[in-house]
Amino acid sequence: MGTIKEIALESGYSPATVSRLLNNDPNLSITADTKNKILKIANKLGYWEDHQEKKIKPTVALLYRVNHKEQLQDEYFTSLKQALVSTVERDALKMKTFYDIEDLIKNASLFQGFIGVGAEPIENAQLVKLHKVLPNGVFVDTNPAPELFDSIRPNLPFTVKNAIDLFIKNGINKIGFIGGVGPKHDHIQENDLRSITFVEYMKTRGMDTKWTCVEGTVSVENGYKLGKMVLAKYKNDLPEAFLIASDTLAVGVLQAFNEENVNVPKDTKILSINNSNVVKYVSPPLSSFNINQKEMIDMALDTLTHLIIRPDRPKIDIRMNTNLVVRKSFVPQEK
């Protein structure tokens, strides 16, 4: 298929420049426009079909979307960002962070692709604009536009089902769920995948879903509010265990339970999701499903690199399984 000489001829750059770029010469200094043009022609001429072992080093943008209103929720995405920065430094890549999608759109020509981190809503019209100028993008943990961009996400349906199965294996059949509402896309409120999966899977197992409490945002404050609501309604009829949609909510729920002298794990057990640092230090420490952020970031960069050299392939949505980290809020006897 396409050779370095053919790419050089069509691009108007020397074979030496083309070769140094495609072989990741760290001392090569060229503009982003030059890099984009050479890579585009390399794709067009099918260069990568005969050089699949090669791995390019793209210049990438980070689109970082957090609201800075909820510390624990922000910490999760901050950790993802730090994992990305560490990996970029390890692999000697170039990256610039953007906090506003319009700024990234204006500067799109400087990059071969982007990684999206964070959960702040983005208008679909903005995502379409971004795709027109920078179509190579991978969102981590969320994907507001799966028809436009790739994504690497934790396998939350698997996690919820795994939690329910684990409770049942340990003789627990009265199971509650506490969660927040899902994301908004283009002003449309979506249901959270964890709560949907919980209700559907509990029904398939023939189990009662009356202890399901889903309302509000993912925040410690809302977790506290939901904990109080649950106790006001079910204090004399608590389930044997709760699955809580995130550690951020679980911290607030645990605070509410402690204030009302509900003993965890004696009166009810708790499983949470995320395995953030804080859950080791609350009382009792929370058993939580770990989301391997480093692996998600590594997978996101590999997926982006593959997309850059295979821009016409179908979009990818990868779900990565979680693993349970056991602490005092629930210690399973049967796994």
Results as ranks from 00 to 15, higher is better:
Q293E: 11
T303H: 03
L166N: 13
E75M: 13
Q71W: 09
E295S: 15
S109T: 03
K37A: 12
I244Y: 09
P314H: 02
R310V: 03
T34P: 01
N323H: 06
V88I: 15
I7P: 07
V138E: 04
K315H: 07
G113P: 08
P183C: 09
F289A: 09
V262S: 06
Y201G: 09
R205M: 15
S109V: 06
L72P: 04
D25F: 07
E10V: 07
R194P: 04
K228D: 15
A16V: 13
A119C: 12
A300I: 04
N143W: 08
I152S: 06
I41R: 01
Q255S: 09
G116L: 15
L226G: 01
D302T: 08
G252F: 03
K280N: 13
P154E: 01
M207E: 04
R153A: 14
Q333S: 14
F257Y: 15
N23C: 03
T142H: 04
F289K: 04
S288Y: 01
P285R: 10
W48D: 03
G180Q: 02
M202V: 13
L304T: 05
K81M: 09
T303A: 10
M229Y: 11
K203M: 00
F167W: 14
F77S: 03
V128A: 01
N67H: 08
D165A: 12
K169V: 02
P285M: 10
Y64H: 12
L238K: 10
V251P: 13
K161F: 07
S79G: 12
E89N: 07
V251C: 13
W211T: 08
A42E: 01
T212I: 15
I196Q: 13
I178Q: 06
F257V: 06
E6F: 00
I308N: 12
I291F: 01
L226E: 00
Y47I: 05
N292F: 11
R310E: 02
D317F: 08
L148Y: 05
D100L: 05
S86I: 06
D267T: 10
Q112G: 08
A8D: 14
N321G: 10
A300M: 03
K225G: 00
